[in-house]
């Protein structure tokens, strides 16, 4: 019981702090790649605090509703993750947030928001099957969709699921809103669509969305960590390397079109997932 309470607290409190910190480190590293000095590591927190202090300005009242549902769902999915719950359930709960964010974007009439929402749906469409198939891979190895079973493994999952991990990394790149897949919204200043589907979220509500995003980052990195969950060193090395790769990709790739993304990620990603699943099946 106490253990459960501690895990829930970690999920609710520590996860966003960690997510914000990761965002700060990300910006520092990106600046370093680009020979800039970059903001302090705590900058994301300052940004969010500032957003909370801004005046409330609303385009459509439903957006407020959607922002709250988004952060609730994101928080719940992280808590479920720390409680070692069912992987598919976590994905579906996370989807509640993602979908409501899109619904909110659709509710504003600005074409930027509308086009961004359409693009975000394409992104969801692209990454969801990959994540589901990665979970199926985990199921085929451990015999269960529960994270608690994954943690009982003695061999890192990565050994049996290498291709699925790569496919999951595609999903990760999309979910983190990194180039070349960042066309629904992006953290870069040079957004072609202003701020994509987040255009009309502003002030405190944008701050909520930002915190929700931190939760999601922690969730996705947590999913990655499952692939080497046998030792803490394994987790840190795997997740660290993966995230470094993400930053590198973000900085070296140009933004592509959604057609390219859907075609490329589905053919390569699904093919790799399928091959990996067949290996497991063949055993």
């Amino acid at each position: 019981m106490i253990r459960g309470a501690i895990l829930v607290t970690i999920g609710v409190v520590v996860a966003p702090l960690l997510g914000g910190l990761i965002a700060g480190v990300d910006r520092r590293l990106t600046a370093w790649f680009q020979s800039r000095y970059g903001p302090p590591v705590w900058q994301p927190f300052f940004d969010v605090m500032k957003l909370f202090g801004k005046e409330k300005l609303v385009v459509n009242g439903w957006q407020v509703f959607c922002a709250y549902i988004y952060i609730t769902a994101a928080m719940l999915s992280v808590v479920l993750f720390f409680l070692q719950s069912d992987l598919l359930l976590i994905l579906f709960v996370q989807a509640v947030g993602a979908i409501f964010l899109v619904i909110g974007a659709f509710s504003a009439t600005s074409p930027y928001s509308q086009v961004g929402a359409n693009r975000e749906l394409i992104q969801i469409l692209t990454y969801e099957p990959l994540i589901i198939l990665a979970f199926v891979g985990i199921y085929l190895v451990t015999g269960s969709f529960k994270i608690s079973q994954v943690l009982l493994q003695t061999k890192p999952l990565l050994a049996s699921l290498p291709l699925l991990y790569i496919a999951l990394c595609y999903a990760l790149t999309i979910k983190l809103r990194k180039s070349p897949f960042d066309f629904s919204t992006s953290h870069h200043a040079h957004q072609e669509l202003v701020k994509g589907f987040l255009t009309e979220y502003s002030g405190p509500y944008l701050a909520l969305v930002e915190i929700g995003h931190w939760y999601e980052v922690v969730l996705i990195l947590g999913l990655c960590s499952l692939f080497w969950a046998t030792s803490w060193i394994g987790i840190i090395v795997l997740v660290g390397l993966t995230y470094l790769c993400e930053i590198l990709i973000d900085n070296t790739m140009a933004r592509m079109t959604w057609r390219w993304m859907l075609g490329y990620v589905w053919t390569i990603g699904l093919a790799m997932s399928f091959v990996n699943l067949i290996w497991l099946h063949g055993r």
């Binding site: 989807a95 979908i99 504003a108």
Partner: peptide, 13 residues
Amino acid sequence: VMYWARWAGILLS
């Protein structure tokens, strides 16, 4: 999910 989500959004805009 895709075809449902956008319909839901449209209703509210």
